[in-house]
Design a protein around this nucleic acid. Structure first.
Length: 104
DNA sequence: AAACTGACTGTTA
DNA sequence: GTAACAGCCAGTT
């Protein structure tokens, strides 16, 4: 059934909201769950333009290498948010997916 | 409506 | 093991 506000963007919101505390997942995994397996890049696009003040745990999304896909201050912000949840992140923003990946 | 953009990824070298 | 390339496609202009 197709909801009135159905859209890739909206589905991404729902999936990201479902990532458990202290776990991470990848752009590609979200794209798969959203029904567009090749749209990983678009997931990043959606998160990049999240409305200011959004409560979505966008920082729980990393790339397939377990690395944070942001640079500079943004990388640092995401790293801090994850470490607050107990996720171990190297200074370079690398996470061990074998230990912290969310498995729906 | 058409063109441009890019918080990615799989493949190839 | 790393690096470069090209395809990808929803969102934005």
């Amino acid at each position: 059934m197709t909801a009135p506000h159905d859209s890739f963007q909206h589905r991404v919101y729902q999936i990201v909201a479902a990532i458990p505390f202290g776990r991470v997942t990848t752009y590609g995994e979200i794209a798969h769950l959203a029904g567009s397996p090749r749209a990983a890049r678009q997931v990043g696009g959606v998160l990049k333009r999240l409305p200011a003040g959004s409560k979505l745990p966008w920082y729980r999304v990393v790339n397939r290498n377990g690395a944070i896909s942001l640079a500079g201050d943004d990388l640092n912000r995401q790293r801090q948010a994850l470490m607050v949840e107990g996720v171990e992140v190297s200074a370079d923003g690398i996470i061990d997916l074998h230990r912290f990946r969310w498995q729906p």
